[in-house]
């Protein structure tokens, strides 16, 4: 029953690397852009210290739109942008472009939510001490919400892992793509089982380390 696996070993190795590349690039983008975007959504929201209804509504709308598109559609719709940005539309790096955009929007929302958990009084206390907006962002908001943000990173990574299965559409490769091409289209059940097991292991590891780190950071 496991005769397909041996001959596919190199493919499986490559798939793991491809998944890793896609996740790494898009998580870097998510953290780099998602945190500022989340902070922006938080600060400009209703009743917050930099309340800006129009700016908030526009940003909110854009984030919702990105989040409401099915990922396959986003993947295809962004092909022209991908070509401009990385010069090609196939391969894991190309697939990382739509993945980054989807994960940034998703993660920004999670950041905004964790920031809302910080009691407003704590922010007021810091304001009363003469803290600048930047100091409040770093030393109060992000520092107090850090364990929630780590859990947000965990959740985003796991969603990305499942999104990345669709990367095969643009030749992105990866474990999920392997499952679809060999396990599903060619009825190679052993490949299917192995890829699913791999994905389960990855999700367990990500969730476990995320929970562990979040608990370590949480002194509340």
């Amino acid at each position: 029953m496991f005769d397909n696996l041996l001959s596919l070993m190199p493919e499986i190795g490559l798939a793991i690397v491809q998944t890793g590349v896609m996740l790494f690039i898009s998580m870097c983008c998510a953290v780099l852009f998602g945190i500022p975007l989340g902070v922006f959504l938080y600060f400009t929201g209703r009743g917050q210290i930099f309340e800006r209804p129009v700016l908030f509504r526009i940003t909110n709308y854009v984030v919702n739109t990105v989040r409401s598109l099915p990922f396959v559609i986003l993947l295809v719709a962004l092909i022209p942008l991908t070509r401009v940005m990385v010069g090609t539309t196939i391969g894991p790096v190309a697939a990382a472009v739509p993945l980054s955009i989807a994960s940034t929007a998703y993660f920004a929302r999670l950041v905004e939510q964790s920031l809302r958990e910080v009691p407003k009084g704590v922010i007021e206390a810091a304001l009363g001490m003469g803290a600048t907006p930047l100091q409040i962002t770093w030393k109060v908001l992000l520092a107090e919400a850090r364990s929630g943000i780590v859990l947000g990173i965990t959740l985003t990574t796991i969603s990305l892992l499942s999104y990345s299965a669709m990367a095969g559409i643009v030749g992105g490769g990866g474990i999920g793509d392997l499952a679809i091409r060999f396990g599903y289209y060619r009825f190679q059940t052993d490949v299917m089982i192995l890829t699913v097991i791999l994905l389960i292991i990855f999700v367990q590891i990500i969730q476990f380390s995320g929970n562990f780190l979040a608990r370590l950071l949480d002194k509340r």
């Binding site: 001490m129 003469g130 520092a143 107090e144 002194k219 509340r220």
Partner: peptide, 22 residues
């Protein structure tokens, strides 16, 4: 100027509002 002025005005609250992660 307000930020500087606030440094010479301390404040305490009913619910303390300490930074929980410090």
């Amino acid at each position: 100027e307000l930020r500087v002025a606030r440094r010479s005005i301390g404040m305490i609250f009913q619910h303390f509002y300490l930074l929980q992660n410090r």
